[in-house]
C-alpha cells in the first residue's frame, strides 16, 4: 500500500502504521481514510496529500 506525504508539513501517512491519533487502524490504505480525515501534525485536509516517492 502506498505512502502519502502532506504537502504542508511533510508528514508521511504510512498505511502500515495507520494514524493512532485519529483512531485509524494499522493496515488502512490512504484511499480508505475518511474524507474528513486531516493530517495529525498540521491539520491539512486529505486533498493536500500527494503520493510519496
Amino acid at each position: 500500500m502506498k505512502q502519502y506525504r502532506c504537502t504542508v508539513c511533510g508528514y508521511v501517512y504510512d498505511p502500515k502504521n495507520g494514524d493512532p491519533d485519529n483512531e485509524i487502524k494499522p493496515g488502512t490504505s490512504f484511499e480508505d481514510l475518511p474524507d474528513d480525515w486531516t493530517c495529525p501534525i498540521c491539520g491539512a485536509s486529505k486533498d493536500q496529500f500527494e503520493p510519496a516517492e
Binding site: 504542508v8 508539513c9 501534525i41 498540521c42 491539520g43 491539512a44
Partner: peptide
C-alpha cells in the same frame, strides 16, 4: 484560534 503551521503545528 488554532493556526497550525503558522508557523508550527
Amino acid at each position: 484560534i488554532e493556526t497550525r503551521m503558522l508557523h508550527w503545528p
